[in-house]
């Protein structure tokens, strides 16, 4: 099995497979087909999403199932919540996760809470796919990473894949899961290639993946930061420090066991997260170690995150905003101190 496809193709393929398997799966979003009601436009010329991720779906599934919406996030995300609760299995595309500001009520107060408030008498099998991440020169309102925000809210599952393989398997799992899932796609990963099997497969939630094993330090890295951490690990290895890289893949549920087992083995934890640091996934995972893994720790937990600022536009500033391999190496050096010579 050596087929290589991009992250974007993997996401597209997962949607196509789910739509073939289940007639109730539909996709709603702005320009997800593109050019609705333009007479001269052939479906193959249609946008297929602002980044082309949904391209081709309208040709196979038609405009009844690949539905272009007005720019009305509260409207179509809210509609997707009850379409889900009344028998459909929708995927709603929120173009950028930053636009959650326009539909937070529908996600937070409606979709996330129906089941609990109704005493278990409703389910909301809705997947919200959304793009996140800095590094695209897209400035403060198109670059945030808001997964912590959703992780905070009970009733929402939060998925954040780092590779094409994980993206496909996790998206299929998301679509066929009976709860509301927010599925994060890093815009800078879309062109990344990786091995992806042709058919249908699912990756269960709450199962972290060890992307690299090592004995000396555990690095929990979220989303794209897995790749940044891998580069740091290569550097560290040159100096005899073997890092273990844990990719949680889902933040809700969180695979505490895999993280704690790794920390037990290495005695050190660095959390790498490109989101803002306050009340974040990084602080949550650090707290997990303090709470349940204190006895394993040989050094204080370190976090390598963005600063507590919006994402700047200027390339010169955005480059220093994001965690880098250097910053991770430095954090490891600080925590290993004299014990390990780097």
């Amino acid at each position: 099995m050596t087929r290589q496809i991009t992250f974007s193709q993997a996401v597209n393929e997962a949607m196509a497979i789910s739509m073939r398997e289940d007639q109730d799966v539909i996709l709603l979003g702005e320009d997800v087909a593109g050019g609705a009601a333009v007479d001269h436009l052939q479906d193959e010329e249609a946008w297929g999403g602002v980044m082309g991720v949904t391209k081709g779906l309208v040709q196979e599934f038609g405009r009844d199932r690949i539905i272009d919406t007005p720019i009305a996030e509260a409207g179509y995300v809210g509609a997707a919540v009850t379409a889900a609760a009344t028998g459909m299995r929708p995927i709603a595309e929120l173009m950028f996760n930053d636009f959650i500001g326009s539909c937070l009520d529908e996600v937070m107060n409606q979709g996330a809470k129906l089941r609990y408030m109704f005493g278990g008498k409703a389910k909301v099998p809705l997947t919200i796919r959304t793009m996140h991440g800095a590094g695209f020169r897209a400035a403060a309102q198109h670059s945030q990473s808001l997964y912590s925000f959703f992780t905070h809210i009970p009733g929402i599952k939060v998925v954040i894949p780092s590779t094409p393989y994980d993206a496909k398997g996790l998206l299929l799992e998301s679509i066929f899961d009976d709860d509301l899932v927010v599925f994060f796609e890093d815009k800078t990963l879309y062109t990344m290639k990786g091995e992806v099997p042709e058919g249908s497969y699912r990756i269960p939630f709450g199962k972290a993946d060890i992307k690299r094993s090592g004995e000396d330090v555990t690095i929990v890295a979220i989303g794209k930061m897995v790749h940044t951490a891998m580069k740091a690990a290569d550097e560290l290895a040159k100096n005899g420090v073997e890092a273990e890289i844990v990719d949680p893949r889902t933040l809700s549920p969180l695979d505490e066991d895999t993280i704690l087992t790794s920390v037990e083995k290495t005695g050190r934890l660095v959390v790498v997260d490109e989101a803002n640091p306050r009340c974040s996934a990084a602080t949550d995972i650090a707290a997990l170690a303090a709470d349940k893994g204190f006895d394993y720790l040989d050094a204080p937990v370190k976090m390598v995150t963005a600063p507590h600022t919006p994402v700047p536009f200027a390339p010169s500033l955005e480059d220093i905003y994001l965690p880098t391999p250097d910053k991770i190496v430095k954090a490891v050096q600080e925590m290993t101190g004299s014990e390990l010579v780097l």
Partner: peptide
């Protein structure tokens, strides 16, 4: 010129010069 690195932390708040002592 490009903005200087220290400008990254400026202008988040009126009352703090930097990012208010947050982890960074």
């Amino acid at each position: 010129p490009h903005p200087l690195p220290e400008q990254l932390l400026e202008d988040v708040y009126v009352s703090y010069k930097t990012d208010g002592g947050a982890v960074s």
